[in-house]
């Protein structure tokens, strides 16, 4: 499964970057979301997959019995997911406001702050 997932992750990266290279702001966000999935899944896969049980200590026991899934990447990913969510929510609203300000979804229209010569 690692191999298959590695390919999936590669595809997620490729697709994420590809979407960021489009001219649409909405697609930009989609690209960022995909990159988020990609990096979360990557952490998960790279710290070795196991089909074994989740890292829960059975009632009465003091330790988890092998084999179990590594809890560390899970905790990291949880944090990363939530943080990513916050950022994406902000980005969404930002894009909406930018859309209202520029009156277009086309990122090539969003150039005024870079090129003084294009500024009125």
């Amino acid at each position: 499964m690692e191999v298959a997932l590695a390919i999936v992750i590669g595809a997620l990266y490729a697709a994420g970057l590809y979407m960021m290279l489009r001219r649409s702001m909405v697609k930009l966000i989609a690209g960022l979301v995909l990159l988020g999935y990609a990096s979360n899944l990557l952490i998960f896969v790279v710290s070795r997959l196991t089909r074994a049980s989740p890292p829960l200590v059975p009632e009465g026991a003091h330790s988890v019995a092998e084999p179990f899934a590594d809890p560390v990447p899970q905790a990291l990913i949880l944090t990363a997911i939530v943080i990513g969510f916050g950022l994406q929510a902000f980005a969404l609203v930002l894009v909406r406001r930018a859309f209202q300000a520029v009156n277009s979804d086309d990122l090539d229209q969003v150039t005024a702050s870079d090129r003084p010569d294009l500024q009125a």
Binding site: M20, F90, A98, A101, S113
Partner: peptide
């Protein structure tokens, strides 16, 4: 403002 929003889009991306 428009400039701020435009700058922010690039910044966050």
């Amino acid at each position: 403002s428009r400039a701020q929003l435009e700058g922010s889009v690039k910044y966050f991306a």
